[in-house]
Amino acid sequence: MSATCVLCHRFFVVANAIASAYLVLSLVLSIFHILKTGAKVTRAVLIILDMVISALLISGASAATAIVYLAHNGNPRVNWFAICQEYNAFCERVSGALVGSFLAILVLMLLISLSAVTLSKK
Rank of each mutant, 00 (worst) to 15 (best):
S62E: 10
F81S: 12
I67Y: 09
G38D: 10
V68Q: 10
I67H: 11
I58G: 02
A39K: 11
H33V: 11
F81G: 08
L46F: 07
L57W: 01
A15V: 03
A19S: 07
N73R: 09
A63D: 05
I48D: 13
I18W: 04
T37C: 06
C84N: 01
G38I: 10
F32G: 14
G38H: 05
L23S: 06
L35F: 15
L23A: 13
S30M: 13
V14A: 10
V45N: 04
A64V: 01
L46H: 04
T65H: 06
T37M: 09
A44M: 05
W80H: 11
H33C: 14
R77S: 08
H33L: 11
A66F: 10
L49G: 00
A55V: 05
R43M: 09
A64N: 00
T65C: 06
K40T: 06
A64I: 00
C84K: 02
A17F: 08
V45G: 11
V28W: 10
L27T: 13
N75C: 06
V13H: 04
F32N: 14
I31C: 13
K36S: 10
C84W: 02
F81R: 14
A66K: 09
T37D: 10
L56A: 05
F81T: 13
S30Y: 07
K40D: 13
G60S: 04
L57P: 01
F12G: 00
A39Q: 14
Y69C: 01
H72S: 02
S26C: 04
I48T: 11
S30F: 12
N16R: 07
L70I: 02
V78Y: 14
V78F: 11
I34N: 10
P76N: 08
R43K: 14
S20I: 03
S62F: 03
A64H: 02
K36E: 13
L29N: 12
S30D: 12
K36P: 04
S20Y: 09
